[in-house]
């Protein structure tokens, strides 16, 4: 998560890039506290765990999907891999997808 925040700062004012964080918390109060604590500046949403599981086959969090301009998922980082999401790797995915036209 700290990685995403740092990378987000880089792309915050880039109109070609969007960051959406979706929580599967069942406790909205805890989620609100968590978001506030971390001062997340990006869009934060909430969904049901079942929806995440059915739609994106997300059973373990975190899971990150990199979606291109046409709405196609091009990269995904699930579970343990996500902790390999260094700033560089996250940035690489974003730049790569930006470069595709």
């Amino acid at each position: 998560m700290p990685h995403l925040q740092k990378v987000f700062e880089k792309y915050q004012s880039d109109p070609e890039v969007a960051f959406v964080l979706v929580s599967i918390d069942d406790d909205p109060a805890r989620l609100a506290r968590y978001v506030e604590e971390r001062k997340f500046a990006m869009t934060v949403g909430r969904t049901e765990p079942d929806a995440a599981s059915k739609a994106f086959r997300v059973n373990d969090v975190p899971a990150t999907f990199y979606i291109d301009r046409d709405g196609i998922i091009r990269y995904e980082a699930r579970g343990g891999e996500t902790h390999g999401d260094s700033d560089d790797r996250v940035g690489w995915y974003i730049e790569e997808l930006k470069a595709r036209r």
């Binding site: 890039v17 969007a18 964080l21 929580s23 997300v58 975190p62 046409d70 996250v90």
Partner: peptide, 20 residues
């Protein structure tokens, strides 16, 4: 409601997480 389809045209990073 948030609709990610409205973000078509941008590169989207969609991250699922939980606060625990």
């Amino acid at each position: 409601a948030i609709d990610i389809a409205a973000l078509r045209g941008k590169v989207l990073l969609l991250n699922f997480f939980a606060s625990w």
